[in-house]
Structure formats: structure tokens, C-alpha cells
Nucleic acid binder design. Sequence first.
DNA 1: TATGAATGAGTCTTCATTCAT
DNA 2: CATGAATGAAGACTCATTCAT
Lengths: 196, 196, 196, 196
Amino acid sequence: MPRVSVEAERKEQILSAACEVIAEIGFKSLRIADVAKRARTSTGTVHYYFDTKRDLMHAAFEWNFSRSVDRRRELLDAAEPPSVRLRRFIDSYLPSDDETITAWNVWAELWIEALHDPDLQELNEQVYGEWRRMVAAIVRDGQDAGEFREGDAVVFANALIGMVDGLSLQVLMGSRAMTVERMRAVCDQVLTQFLS
Amino acid sequence: MPRVSVEAERKEQILSAACEVIAEIGFKSLRIADVAKRARTSTGTVHYYFDTKRDLMHAAFEWNFSRSVDRRRELLDAAEPPSVRLRRFIDSYLPSDDETITAWNVWAELWIEALHDPDLQELNEQVYGEWRRMVAAIVRDGQDAGEFREGDAVVFANALIGMVDGLSLQVLMGSRAMTVERMRAVCDQVLTQFLS
Amino acid sequence: MPRVSVEAERKEQILSAACEVIAEIGFKSLRIADVAKRARTSTGTVHYYFDTKRDLMHAAFEWNFSRSVDRRRELLDAAEPPSVRLRRFIDSYLPSDDETITAWNVWAELWIEALHDPDLQELNEQVYGEWRRMVAAIVRDGQDAGEFREGDAVVFANALIGMVDGLSLQVLMGSRAMTVERMRAVCDQVLTQFLS
Amino acid sequence: MPRVSVEAERKEQILSAACEVIAEIGFKSLRIADVAKRARTSTGTVHYYFDTKRDLMHAAFEWNFSRSVDRRRELLDAAEPPSVRLRRFIDSYLPSDDETITAWNVWAELWIEALHDPDLQELNEQVYGEWRRMVAAIVRDGQDAGEFREGDAVVFANALIGMVDGLSLQVLMGSRAMTVERMRAVCDQVLTQFLS
DNA sequence: TATGAATGAGTCTTCATTCAT
DNA sequence: CATGAATGAAGACTCATTCAT
């Protein structure tokens, strides 16, 4: 009886390492050897699981996204009022803890890669579709509950998501003018002022 | 009698070429030879003016920014009501024409580089400081004129800028769900709904 | 089960090739590609074993020296009278056979590199220290045996070594006035006249 | 009436600069631009006077030698006993003052170049011929005057010159075991012990 | 005469990828 | 399954040399 997926485990190990390395030194500087070392294995093994560097990177981007969604699923399904769920959801994306920061870094690297890579654009499209649907659903819930003001929920979701992306970038860049605290304040004010 | 600034002219030529190449194929893929060819010169000449690839890239990023500001200065100084100036200003950043799209692409590449480069972080800091001041100034003008609702102008500027950055990225990535038109609509609604 | 020191073998192969190339075309003209070709391998492989050209050169210089010493160890330990051992030792340094000529050429190149490289100066210092000790030891043996005239053995060793170095250079340069035969004659006369 | 040889002056200036640069950073590292800067002129001008880098280097080597001879001519012609003239001559070659050290450095670089350059070998041949004749002449004078012991003067000259070359190299390399003082002591002892 | 901007051939070095073990 | 030695294509950077002024 073979252990279920030694392969799957090893792949995860490599993908996790890849994301860490991307976040640390950037996609451009990443070498297969860096990932191998981080995953405590060899370049040969990395290539055993991923034919090319490109394959590895795409898999890493997808893995980064699916983990990000997994980590938030409970937040969305919670039995809280929409206003609270929205705040919690947005709050969970603030680049404050290491895990979230790493995920954001990887995500930012994906954006720039996607500018010249249709496959990654497609991944982005799906991911953002999902994100928009999630936010818009909460917004509609809130509007139905009379918590949020009226208006096109999708437009609102887009505005909110765009803002979070843009501000997160500034935080990631270590901006002194846009720290996590500032970002939290901006998000708070926007949610307070315009959603209630 | 040397012509005044053969040097300056040639540098511009190279920097312009560098930005075009960055926008087209990305920072990561850019080779000095590409820039040289685009500038109709040789790699030797590029290195004659810029010691290292890094120097060239930094100079290109700065050049990209200063051109971006130059192109908008008149918008800010126009004798229009603040609400119009703000709309025009935001509108000028929509990635619709080639020049603006190129500038955004370069800027996006800078972000990702800046994640691992303190010098570029500093450039980003200055640029965003300037941008925030410009937007916040219009917002305050509008508040003084009674056109905009009250509230912290800086927070508002940050929210607006963040949103524009985030949405632009999606547009640049060729998102079918976030085209320039959609982005324009989102910006319009946000400005209409919250500034009036 | 990795063969014992594929690495060591391969390194030797490369170092040997490097010394040959240095001797043939000179340190200044040496290209990694030359060494690779001589070692019947690729530039990539050379760099796999030696990070930089400098590392390779330093290693080659050390290898050249240690081989030189190995080749002479038996001479020094021979059970001959000191006068014979000294003559044989000096004689073994005459640039007459290909192996010795190659070693001298490499050594000469090291001298010039060492003029501007403290690490190589240190190597030279150790090597000459060893050489001086060896010669001085024979000289003292000879003095104890009454074969050599009295006097400071170290001073004498230095004079002898200096002379051999200087004359060898002339021979290496293909001087018509200082051939190996002439050099041998000069050494003979000095040894005869002053050691007996 | 044109000034006599602006050209000659400028050439000297460049050759002097070339020698200084060779001595400082070595033949291998020398760039035309370094020489130009040292001579307070431009690379274009250097090439105006010397077609190729090789031409410049050869000229510099010759210039270095002729200056070296000029500086010692009076020593040789002095009306002193041969033993004094020989000591003074040898002494003048000790790498103690900056000028002599520079000259030695250049000379050492020439040796290594000559290993792979017949033209420089020829220059070396002439120079050493001259040097040998000078030393041998003093030796013969000394023998005639009964100051020096009998023996082949040329062999003796060769031994002496070889020793000076070899020891100078060690001094130039900054050997802690062979400083100028040590070298002077060795030379003294050799001259004393064997010439008197 | 003198300059220095421009060139491009030449070389080190990097690194994804392969493959024998 | 896993390894890591070996490869070679690719690219940044250097610098002697040229030439218009």
C-alpha cells in the first residue's frame, strides 16, 4: 500500500519553497537552485516534478492563490452581519502578518509576469472574478439587510478591491507614508463612510 | 564647440527606448541589446552613458515619472472648478492611450523592482508623496468650495490613488472584467457618489 | 555511491590544463574557454569547480607549486653528501625539460600577478620560505660536514635562490646569451668556487 | 621657428605616464584610458602618438630602459676603484627609492610579456647584453687591479645580475623575508666574500 | 594636433536543463 | 524517486580603436 502521494507532499514542499523565495528575492532573481535549497532538495528533484521553470512558477502562483482562498473561506461563511464580514474580509488582506505579506508579494510578482503572459492573465481573471463575486455577494447581502447604501454592487466591489490592491503595494514597498496602520485607517474610513 | 548636450540628447534617446522596451517585454526580459537596438545605437554606447544595467533602469524609472508629471502639470493649474480638475486628473491616468499605457507598464515594473530595492522604494516614496499632495490639494479646494463632502483629504487622496493603481493593473493585464471603460465607470461612480 | 572524488580528479584535470595554458600563452591572454578546451570540458564545468577566473588562477598557482615540491622531495631526502644533494637540487630547477619549463613559466606569471595581489604575495612568501629552508638546511649539512665554507647559511641560500630565479627568467625568455647550458655552467662555477 | 618637438615632449609625457601606470596596476590591468588620464590627456591623443596599445607598451619598455641607463652612466664613468664602482652600481639597483622601484616593476612586467613576444625578447637581449658588458668590464678592471679574485668575468657578471634580478623580484613582491635591507646585506656579503 | 563620443568584438559569468547513476 | 555533475546558450560589461570635429 503506497503512501498516498509522496509526490503530492513533495510538490507542496517545493511550491511552498518557491513562494517563499519569490517573496524574498523576487521572481526575476529566483533561481531553481534557490528553490531547491529552500525545499531541502536538489535542482534535479525540482525538475523531476516541474519540467520547466515556467511550469514551476505557474504552479506556485496557483498554489499561492488557492491557499489564500482556503485561509479565508470560514470568514465568508461566518454567521455575522454583512458589515462585519466585509470588514473582516478586507482586514484579512491587510499585509500585516508574515503569511499574508508573503502571499501579497507573490501575487504582486504574478501581476507583472501576467503583463506579458496570457496564461497568467487567465489565472488573474479567474481569481479576480472569484474575488469580485465574493465581495459583491457580501455587499448585496448588506444592501438587502439595509446595512449598506444602494448602488451597483459590482462597481463597488471593484472599487474596493482596486483600492486594497493599490494600497497593499505601497505597504509592501515599505512606504513610510503608507504603513499597514495607515492602510487600515483608510480602509476603515472608506467602509464606515460609504457603506453605512 | 561641442553642441550643447549631445549627451543629454543621447541620454533621452536611450531612456525613452528603455521605457518602451520595459513596457513591451518587461523589466525581467529586457536586455541592453534590446534598448540599444530600439535607440538605434550600440550596446557599447548604452554603457557609455549608463555604467550598469541597474543605473540605466533607475534612470529610466525616474525619467518615466518626470515625464508623467510634466504631461499633467497644466491639468492641475487649469482654472476649472476642483471637481472638474479632479475628474480630468484621474481621467488622465486611465490607461487608454499608448503613451499612458507605456508609462503605467513601466511604473508597474518599478513597483516590483522596488520590493527588493531601497533606492527605488525611495523614488516611489517621493513620487507618491507628490501625487498625494496634488490630489489632496484639489480635494481641499473642492471642500473649501463646498463641492466635496467633508473628511480627511489625505485619507481620501490615498483611497483614490490606491484604487486607480489597483484598477489600472487589472486593465494593463488585459482583464475582460476590467477594461478601461469599466474602470472609467468605476472611477466616475466613486467620484460622483462620494465627492458631491 | 559516488566514486571517490570525481571532484578531485576533475579539479586536477582543470588545474593541469590551466597551468599548461598559462605557460603557453601567458596569464594575461588566458581565457576560461582555453582552459576548458585544454581540459576537454566546457566553460560551464570550469566554473562549476572554480567560481571565478581569479579562484582558478590562484588554485593553479598553488597546484603548480605543490607539484614542484613533490617532484623534488626524494632529491632532498637522498642519502648523498650535501654537496651532491645541493647540486642535484639546483640542477633540477634548470629549465631544461618541458615539465620544468612549464612550471617556471607559471611561476614567473605568478610573480607578476603577485606584484598587485596580496594573496599571491602570501603564497610566494610561504613557498620561498620553504625553499629557503630546504637550501639552507643542505648548506648547513655541508658546513657541518666540512664540505662548504663557513658563513651565514640563510644569506647563502638567498643568494643562490635569487640567482637561479634571475637566470631562469633569462633562459625562459629564450636569451641567446643565457641558454640552459650557460646557466648550468654559471651555477656549476658558483657552486664549485664558493662551496668547496 | 617651431618649438623643438612638441611631439617629443608629449610622447615623453605619455611614456612616463604609461610606466607609472604599469608599475602601479600592472600591464594586464592597464587601459589606454588610465594612461591618458595620468598624462592629463585623452585616449584619442594617446592613439595619435601610438597607433596601438602594443606600440605604446613597447615604447614604454624602451623608455624605461634608456632612462635607467642614463641615470647610472656617471656611476660607471666615475674615477673610483673598481670595487667601489661595482658596489655603487649594484647598490643603485636596489629597489629602495620610488624611481627605482617603478623602473623594476616595469622591467618585471616586460619579462613576462617577453615570454610570449619575440620583439621584447630582442629588447631584453640587448639590454642584458649591455648590462653584462658593463658589469664584466668593472670585474675585469678589478681583476687587473688585483681587487677581485680571478675567474671568468662574464660568468661572474651573469651570476651577479641573475641574483640581483631574482632578489629584486622578491623585494618588489613585498616579501617579509626579503626586504631591501636583507637584499642589501646579501649583496654586500656576496661582494665582500667573493670579490675581495 | 587634440578630443571624446561611438563602436562592437571579446570574455567572464550565470543558470535552466539534462542525464548517468 | 532522487541526485548533482556537466553543459552551453545567453547576456552584461570592457576597452582598444576609430573618426568627425
